[in-house]
């Protein structure tokens, strides 16, 4: 590996960029690929995108016979939960098991005690300040659980301006509709709404807090591992909503 390539790789990792190092196994020639930052690309970039999304480094054989080792350098997965409510307990535990670094933001000290959330960072702040402290990135999922606009909205307004891979909001269709109206008043539009999974979680009939956490974790996993289908789903949801609004 060339030292300038190594230096750039270390810079990318420090900046939490998703980078794939492609090394030709015959010649040792290396190059850095950024498939998360572009669409399309050649055979090598497409292969790099696959291994990046799957988080699985490995050798690919290209059409011209070259064997290339694709080394995925993904930043750690992170989750920010807004609201140290009951569902946050199983959700944070499941997220830790799935490999996420988890933080919970809640300014209400009696909710956010460390005893209730072992192994999780507690951010004792208003959610907008909490989002700033957490500094979300492309490998971050954020879930708002308070259903209190005072707490959820300031966090949402912040994260919609970042490139987190998942945004989920607890609350019924009706609650979610009102939430979108408030966000529209803040200047957000359909493209922003399409990023929000609301009501949060997969539709699996979850009842208990642990089951709801499973449905949320499942949806986040889908957004992480099958990003195209997650986008298609939220876009379809937004289109259906827009059509319903137009019919009124």
């Amino acid at each position: 590996m060339k030292t300038d390539l190594l230096a750039q790789l270390l810079l990318d990792r420090a900046a939490k960029r998703q980078v794939v190092l492609a090394t030709d196994m015959a010649t040792g020639d290396g190059q850095l690929l950024y498939p998360a930052e572009t669409a399309g690309g050649d055979e090598l970039v497409a292969a790099a995108r696959r291994v990046m999304v799957a988080d699985k480094s490995g050798i690919v054989e290209l059409a011209d016979g070259r064997r290339v080792f694709l080394h995925v350098h993904n930043p750690a997965l992170r989750m920010l939960i807004v609201g140290a409510v009951h569902i946050a307990q199983p959700l944070s535990q499941m997220a830790v098991l799935a490999g996420y670094d988890v933080a919970i933001v809640d300014p209400r000290r009696e909710f956010a005690s460390q005893d209730r959330f072992p192994g999780v960072t507690i951010i004792d702040a208003w959610p907008d300040d909490g989002v700033d402290q957490f500094a979300p990135d492309r490998r971050t999922a954020i879930v708002t659980l308070t259903h209190d606009p005072k707490l959820d909205d300031p966090a949402l307004i912040k994260v919609l301006r970042t490139d987190v891979f998942y945004i989920g909001c607890l609350g019924s269709n009706r609650t979610h509709g009102k939430r979108l109206e408030r966000l529209a008043a803040e200047g957000f539009g359909e493209a922003d709404f399409a990023r929000i999974h609301g009501p949060v979680g997969l539709d699996i009939g979850a009842k208990s807090p642990a089951e709801i956490a499973i449905s949320i974790m499942g949806e986040i996993t889908g957004a992480l591992r099958r990003p195209a289908s997650a986008v298609a789903k939220t876009v379809a949801k937004a289109a259906a909503k827009a059509a319903a609004k137009a019919a009124e």
Partner: peptide, 23 residues
């Protein structure tokens, strides 16, 4: 905390050590 996190940490050290030794 998790295997993945541990790997990332170890990984960091290896590449940084490579740069440090080279320098």
């Amino acid at each position: 905390m998790t295997t993945m996190t541990t790997d990332v940490v170890e990984h960091d050290k290896v590449l940084e050590k490579a740069a440090e030794w080279k320098a």
